[in-house]
């Protein structure tokens, strides 16, 4: 039942065995030890499992592990090779998170946004982050940190 797949995980070539039914999120957490993506709903509603496949954000609870055979997967752990991202620095300064459970998802999402669109408007930031739920902060401090990162005004 197990099949071997090859995945570029956070810049490192990895060979792992998966079952076709294994969910990517579980593969990342349990087989690769990458615990920053987390399960909040298991059905794509909350975004706390967000990772990048070939640079594009996905909800890893709605992807099979076996689907990423031959692909590049990046989690928050893999975005910090050169230290903290600017957006992380702003989030740290701004006390952007409270319980912190949603933080990895938000940071991965904001990274994708700023890669695709370095100068987003406030509305574009809100739209890009709308698939990530946070129950603690009321979002404002998260959004403000992203705005500060890209120097966006209106």
């Amino acid at each position: 039942m197990n099949q071997e797949i090859k995945v570029m995980v956070n810049g490192e070539k990895r060979k792992i065995e998966v079952k076709p039914t294994d969910i990517l999120l579980d593969v990342l957490r349990n087989k690769l030890g990458l615990k920053s993506p987390k399960c909040g709903c298991g059905r794509g509603d909350c975004g706390t499992c967000t990772v990048l496949i070939n640079g594009k954000s996905v909800k890893s609870c709605l992807v099979l592990g076996i689907e990423v055979d031959g692909q590049e997967v990046t989690t928050l752990e893999g975005l910090m090779d050169n230290g903290l991202l600017r957006v992380q620095e702003k989030m740290l300064e701004g006390n952007s998170f409270q319980c912190g459970f949603c933080a990895p998802g938000f940071i991965v999402m904001s990274h994708e946004l700023l890669e695709e669109n370095p100068g987003p408007t406030k509305e574009e930031i809100k739209e890009a982050m709308a698939g990530n739920l946070c129950r603690c902060t009321g979002y404002t401090p998260i959004l403000e940190a992203i705005e500060k990162t890209c120097g966006c005004k209106e």
Binding site: G47, V58, K59, L62, M109, E112, E127, A130
Partner: peptide
């Protein structure tokens, strides 16, 4: 449609 990370897929 849904949200960005869903629309990517």
């Amino acid at each position: 449609v849904a949200s960005k990370a869903i629309r990517n897929r």
